[in-house]
Design a protein around this nucleic acid. Structure first.
Length: 180
DNA sequence: TGCTTGATTAACT
DNA sequence: GTTAATCAAGCAC
């Protein structure tokens, strides 16, 4: 599996195309898989983005090759997962905010400690799939990776809304949500 | 070296 | 509707 062409483009263009793709995690031989239903785009010129202001150690993965995983800690207690996009040298990524459980729902329930809201919200999604700092920079299209991205069924339709939880760049409608 | 602020969530009142 | 939990990056001193 090679990195799809659209991931070499801008985040705002790539983000909606990721809807319907499947994210699979294999940790300790246990598999969980979701179909992406909610994403947000972050680009280099975007004051809300971690890549804003140039290349720094923390955001180096965002400036690397597309198709890799960028993970960061949010509010000191949650992990958030992004798919890096744009060519090498461009700091852009797509935040994975929510998905629909396809496999390993029972494991997700155990990891989350609850049965509802398994994979809604970026922090919850990571917790359910066991994504942490140690997966940062992984190639999502390498069959040896713990985290893998696979094509799926594109949604019949989706909507674009303002992004959640940010204070800058709020005018951009770069959040994309699958419509049932 | 110290203070402030989050690409959040869940448990309160 | 409000707030605690919890920590590292970023900025002010």
């Amino acid at each position: 599996m090679t990195v799809p062409e659209f991931l070499f483009g801008e985040a705002r263009t790539a983000a909606p195309l990721l809807l319907g793709w499947r994210l699979q995690s294999t940790i300790d031989g246990q598999v969980t898989e979701v179909e992406l239903t909610e994403v947000e785009a972050y680009s280099q010129e975007d004051p809300a983005s971690h890549s804003f202001g140039g290349l720094r150690p923390r955001n180096a993965v965002m400036y690397g090759s597309p198709g890799r995983l960028y993970v960061y800690r949010s509010y000191g207690m949650h992990w958030c997962a992004n798919v890096v996009c744009g060519p090498d040298g461009m700091g852009a990524a797509v935040l994975l905010r929510a998905g629909k459980p396809l496999r390993g729902a029972e494991l997700m329930t155990r990891r989350r400690g609850r049965v509802d809201d398994l994979t809604t919200g970026p922090g919850n999604l990571c917790q359910a799939m066991g994504i942490t700092d140690e997966h940062k920079g992984q190639d999502l299209f390498d069959s040896n990776s713990a985290l893998r991205l696979m094509s799926g069924q594109p949604p019949a339709s989706y909507i674009a809304t303002p992004r959640v939880g940010i204070s800058k760049g709020v005018d951009r409608r770069w959040r994309f949500v699958t419509q049932a």
